[in-house]
Simulated scan of single mutants.
Amino acid sequence: MNVFPTLSFRGKLADAADFPLVMGILNATPDSFYIGSRVQTEAEVARRANQIVEEGGRIIDIGAFSTRPGGVQVSQEEEMERLRLALKTVRREQPETLVSVDTFRPEVARMSVEEFGADLINDVSEGGITGIANVPLEEETGDYPTMFRMVARLGVPYILMSVQPTLRKMLIGFAKEVQQLHELGVKDIIIDPGYGFGKTLEQNYQLLSEAEKLTVLGLPILVGVSRKSMIYKQTGGDATTALNGTTVVHTISLMKGASILRVHDVKEAVETVELVGKMRAEGEKKREEMHCESKDKDNR
């Protein structure tokens, strides 16, 4: 089953005809795990933003805080400073392209939306459950996580990523969190199983093997596996040699219901979406032909 959702971006609906989408990664950091994604100067940001769109990316995901293991925990002020440079440049270069901001900090989300009109918030902390060190980010007050309250106030689509190690725990967590978001009035929710976050190598592949079960939630599914260690720890090498493995996992993910691929290599991901889509279209055409033939026989 493939979830082809309807989402509202800037008041415009994206529906089945628009999916699957490819989201290109733009890291305004000096230390993200894949060196090819790092950009820091205005010229580098502009070049990367234009490359993502030219290669077929529909969303630019901007991050300014590396969540890789051992990453430096920069201050909120430093994260905002990096994002202001990146967002200003991306909005100038690609004003019509959807922009996602990868942050777990509610005030960073607010700044990104209110000052630069960011279209989505991509939160890797599952609403504040965990940060890069797998510890609570803050003392929560009230019935709802601070980030949930913030995205409700901002009125933008929200990517909810799970840090749970198993599908069962993930579904339980998602059910509770999606309910909370709905209670706050958040309508456009995208779920991300969080490959590589809070999971062993074996748990990542166990999740991949049964990822189609996430479609029971009826929400769009984002998959972020691009060049991650779950690939190169299995095949050998490092992030620089993990493109082929990434494409394989992208193909499996699309077959199991992914609606959005978050990637470093946009051209290759767009081609993967196109080829899987062509296979699906021809399969559907063949099934329709067989159905018509069956009906003709019944009417004779």
Results as ranks from 00 to 15, higher is better:
205 Y>M: 10
205 Y>A: 12
205 Y>G: 14
205 Y>H: 05
205 Y>R: 02
205 Y>E: 06
205 Y>Q: 06
206 Q>W: 04
206 Q>V: 07
206 Q>M: 12
207 L>Y: 00
207 L>D: 03
207 L>F: 03
207 L>A: 04
208 L>N: 00
208 L>I: 13
208 L>P: 07
208 L>Y: 01
209 S>N: 12
209 S>K: 09
209 S>A: 15
209 S>L: 15
210 E>N: 13
210 E>V: 15
210 E>T: 12
210 E>K: 10
210 E>M: 05
211 A>R: 05
211 A>I: 15
211 A>M: 15
211 A>D: 08
212 E>D: 13
212 E>M: 03
212 E>V: 08
212 E>W: 11
212 E>P: 01
213 K>E: 15
213 K>T: 13
214 L>F: 13
214 L>I: 13
214 L>D: 04
214 L>A: 02
215 T>M: 04
215 T>W: 02
215 T>H: 01
215 T>D: 08
215 T>S: 08
215 T>A: 04
215 T>Q: 04
216 V>E: 14
216 V>M: 10
217 L>V: 06
217 L>A: 03
218 G>R: 01
219 L>T: 06
219 L>H: 05
219 L>Q: 04
220 P>Y: 02
220 P>D: 09
221 I>Q: 00
222 L>V: 08
222 L>H: 05
222 L>F: 07
223 V>H: 01
223 V>G: 01
224 G>H: 10
225 V>T: 13
225 V>Q: 05
225 V>I: 11
226 S>T: 09
226 S>Q: 11
226 S>H: 09
226 S>K: 05
227 R>T: 04
227 R>N: 11
227 R>A: 09
227 R>V: 10
227 R>H: 00
228 K>C: 10
228 K>Q: 08
228 K>D: 05
229 S>R: 02
229 S>C: 10
229 S>A: 10
230 M>C: 05
230 M>T: 03
230 M>K: 02
230 M>G: 01
231 I>Y: 03
231 I>F: 00
231 I>R: 05
232 Y>A: 12
232 Y>T: 09
233 K>P: 12
234 Q>P: 07
234 Q>L: 15
234 Q>D: 15
235 T>L: 15
236 G>R: 00
236 G>Y: 00
237 G>E: 08
237 G>R: 00
237 G>M: 08
238 D>V: 14
238 D>F: 00
238 D>N: 14
239 A>Y: 08
239 A>K: 00
240 T>N: 12
241 T>P: 15
241 T>Q: 02
242 A>D: 14
242 A>W: 10
243 L>C: 00
244 N>I: 11
244 N>D: 14
244 N>W: 08
245 G>Q: 04
245 G>D: 11
247 T>E: 14
247 T>G: 08
248 V>D: 03
248 V>G: 09
249 V>S: 07
249 V>A: 05
249 V>P: 03
249 V>I: 14
